[in-house]
Computed example of a mutant assay.
Amino acid sequence: MSGTHTEVPSLVSAPLPHPVPADEYGACPVTDVLRRIGDKWTVLVVVLLGRRRHRFNELHRSVDGISQRMLTRTLRTLEQDGLVEREVHPTVPPSVEYGLTPLGRSLLPPLSGLADWAVAHHGEITAARGRATGEDGQMARSRPAQ
């Protein structure tokens, strides 16, 4: 789970303490990365930049509903994490392009695997959600067997 458990072959086969300490879960590299890529816009921005480099306004026009402030924040976070590079071209006015770094490109295959899984199982998940909620949209309560 945490930085001390990086030698395990797979997350699902890693031994976990019981209960999992909150501080260890919070310090876990997997938790950290999922928090970063799990926000509203990051995956979409990474996918777009995975196709080709974009200028800021071009990227902004490509993502309906994202504000300039949120796009700036998302790009800065991805740049701080080493996933996106920002290249300033010495023109008047300066032109800025964003692209994925090699580290950012290495995120595309596992992201694609997760996307493929989500598409393949979306119907099952939707059906399970429908069974779990009542007509009023509230979670159905467990009823004792009769």
Rank of each mutant, 00 (worst) to 15 (best):
D136W: 01
P110Q: 01
K40H: 05
L111P: 06
S62D: 10
G123Q: 03
T77D: 11
A118I: 14
H121I: 08
L103A: 15
G99L: 12
T126W: 09
M70S: 06
A132F: 05
H5T: 14
G3Q: 08
G38Y: 02
S112Y: 09
R131Y: 04
E97M: 09
D116W: 07
T91H: 01
V46C: 02
Y25G: 00
P94K: 03
Y98T: 02
H18G: 06
G82I: 11
L108I: 13
G134K: 01
E85H: 11
V20I: 12
T126Q: 13
P102R: 04
D32T: 14
G3A: 09
R73Y: 08
L16P: 05
V63P: 09
V33F: 15
D81P: 03
R131S: 06
T77E: 11
P17I: 06
P29Q: 13
H54C: 10
D64S: 13
F56S: 05
V8A: 15
T72S: 13
G134S: 00
P90M: 03
P21Q: 02
E79F: 06
I37E: 06
V88P: 06
V8K: 13
L34Q: 12
I125W: 09
V20Y: 00
G130E: 00
R69T: 13
P93H: 01
T72C: 07
N57D: 10
E58L: 05
A27W: 05
E79M: 11
M1L: 09
D23S: 02
P93R: 06
S142I: 00
R69A: 13
G104Q: 15
G3W: 10
S112W: 09
T126D: 13
T6D: 12
R143A: 10
I125G: 08
P19I: 05
V96W: 05
P19E: 00
R69Q: 13
T4K: 14
T91C: 02
V63W: 07
G113M: 14
Q80P: 10
V88L: 07
L44M: 07
H18Y: 13
Q80N: 15
R131T: 04
H54A: 00
E85F: 09
D39Y: 02
P93T: 08
V47S: 12
R51E: 15
H89R: 11
A118S: 15
P144R: 06
L11V: 11
H18C: 11
R52D: 12
D32V: 14
Q68W: 04
H122M: 14
G104A: 15
L108N: 03
V45D: 10
D32M: 13
S62N: 03
R35T: 09
P94Q: 02
